[in-house]
Design a protein around this nucleic acid. Structure first.
Length: 147
RNA sequence: CGGAGUGGCCGGGUGAUCGCUCUUCGUUUUUAAGUCGGAACGCCGACUGCGGCGAGGGGAGGAAAGUCCGAGCUCCAUUGGGCAAGGUGGUUGCUAACGGCGACUGGGGGUAACCCUAAGGAAAGUGCCACAGAAAAUACACCGCCCCCUCACCCUUCGUAAAGGGUUAGCCCCUUUUCUACCCUCUCCCCGUGGAGAGGGUACCAUCUUAUUCCUCCCCUUCAAGGGCAACGUGCCCUGCGAGGGGAGAUUAGGUAGGGAUGGGGUGUGGGAGGUAAGGGUGAAAAGGGGAGGUAAGAGCUCACCGCUUCGGUGGCGACAUCGAAGGCAUGGUAAACCCCACCUGGAGCAAGACCAAAUAGGAUGGCAAGCGAGAGGCACCAUCUCUCUAUCCCACACCCCCUUUUGUGGGGGAGGGUUGGGGUGGGGGGUGUUUUUUUCUACGGGCGUCCCGUCCGGCGCCCUCGGGUCAGGUCGCUUAGAGAAAUGAUCAUCGCCCUGCAGUCGGCGUUCCGACCAAUCUUUUCGGUCGGAACGCCGACUGCAGGGUACAGAACUCGGCUUAUAAGCCACUCCGACCU
RNA sequence: CGGGGCGUAGCGCAGCUUGGUAGCGCGCACCGUUCGGGACGGUGAGGUCGGAGGUUCAAAUCCUCUCGCCCCGA
């Protein structure tokens, strides 16, 4: 298996590109409800992304993990993976509220796949402030894994 | 050394980097919000504080899981008791409680250590027990076995051969053996059928009658065999066993065989009245067990042992164990079938529930304001009309009876008084307006318009207080882990642990070869034993290297248990087997 | 947190109440019919009754535990 390979990439992703600043979680129940109704949607095979501009000025996020993703341990792992994927784009994010709902296909997703996937979705919907191409450092990983 | 059992422990360590969550402190900001003060109409200051940053501290498991029990806690209900429903089910203790746990008892499994066990009641009732089987629960009926009664039928071969004995004139009788036929028992061949072998038994008896057979003699017919004579063939004569027929005789006569009659007995079949539960291919299960005695056949009918029941003694808190006596076999199984008995259980659950502020609608109370209607009182005006109530009479309708008719269609009569209608008479109550008070209600207000009608708009008067409910929030409940859908992770280095492979060292075992010695042999070969060496193979331990693996799984109010999932490892005790000393 | 249901042949379902033979339809295989196919007719194969343990002479059925799926209420 390519377990080892993916693990090495996870190290690189987690240790290298992450900034020390934090990213706020979206805690207000009312806003979350509103976001599901009025927010925009971006759907892919791995996840559904809800997003909406907020007045706070900093991006906020949330990850929902339904029971379809498996046991509690597996759900926690999926949430960590997508959270790290969002963190990798933290500096470029616009002041939006995000909700990520992983779908059943994300049960066995690997770290680098999630990062590139989330970056591509964010770029396609214009949620990144900079004009940086979607994922220059991660494309290498993509090619090497032949995805 | 191998195999097994029981109980318990651990659930990777250290360091580094990055990251998550909660919290404390410090600092900072306006992109959240609030309070207070100043100032005086949108400004300033202070404080709290969201967020950011920095520092410090805390951060899941043995099962956190499943949610199978029991508690705490909260609200609701609740005198007590009963019914219903649900649960539990050996005894005893532990426990706040339990369906949990310990010990013990009974039953089952295992060679054993030990394990499993919802383990009250089937002589309170109901239900079920397929198939097979005579019968599945009242042992009734059936087959079978046995006794008695009666009727019918039968009692056949009465043998062959030999020997001995008795008696005699002879037939005959008795005993033994052999063969054959039949019956019974046992054994064997495959249960039965059938067959083989061994053993045993055999059948009629009594009386009466008959004189047919058997004894002696004669005659006739036929004839085996022998002799004689004659003779080519052949014929004749004599003796004549035996068989058949006839006659006579002998004998007090008897015996034997046969026939007949009577009686008895026996056997078999059928019938009748009984006895019996030993036996009857089955089935999971067959009415105490397998023996001995006993009986016509049988039976706890009797006896000893075992089982069962009852009673008593002893030991134990108890479940129960044990001993003794008696009874004399009743009581099939199933209650994880209904059920009965004993005991337990009020219901719901942290989305329980408590508090806070605000909004909305409605309720209660109080105050203020406006007015419609109703009742009562006062005053004024008008009138005896109208209106209303009541009594009585008449008519119509309705009710009952009679006649009639296609038809409740028409007619007549009657009594009663029907929440009906109309009319007449009599009696009682006056009507309108205004005001006061009481009560109840929302009556309404405004615009258009001279006013009414009509139309449009607005509203269901305002204020204070009170309690409850609803929706969405916040706080508490709630935690020296923590709650907003919910945090502990990733990687590296290193040390552990396990598996696999390779290499090396050591030890053990096996095979082959070589050498020495011992024993045997006249000698050699072969074979056996011991020791040493070499090679190969296997196993184990250690060391090194390389690769791989390191589970199950995440707290949501908290505890006590149960169950289930778990890589690898460790500890203690015990049992069985083999070998060595 | 509380309550309920389902699991039986490749698929969809009976049978469970009241224990004793596991069955129906479609599908599959073979044969017949047809020039051939379909349809039709006949024959046949195919099931640890989700798993484990227990009660019973006997368990798909009764009891306990467990696994998976689905639904409902607050």
């Amino acid at each position: 298996m390519g377990e080892k390979l993916s693990r090495e990439e996870e190290i690189k992703a987690e240790s290298g590109s992450l900034s020390p600043s934090r990213l706020a979680r979206l805690k207000d129940r009312k806003i979350r409800k509103e976001l599901f109704i009025t927010g925009k949607k971006a759907v892919s095979g791995l996840m559904v992304l809800y997003f909406q501009e907020n007045r706070v000025g900093t991006p906020r996020y949330l990850v929902y993990a339904s029971k379809k993703l498996g046991s509690a341990v597996q759900r926690n792992r999926v949430k960590r993976v997508f959270r790290e994927a969002l963190y990798s784009k933290k500096k470029e994010l616009k002041a939006y509220d995000f909700i990520i709902v992983p779908r059943e296909g994300a049960k066995t997703v690997r770290m680098h796949e999630a990062i590139s996937h989330v970056g591509k979705i964010l770029f396609d919907h214009g949620l990144l402030e900079k004009k940086i191409p979607p994922n220059p450092p991660l494309s290498k990983g993509n090619l090497s894994n032949g995805i």
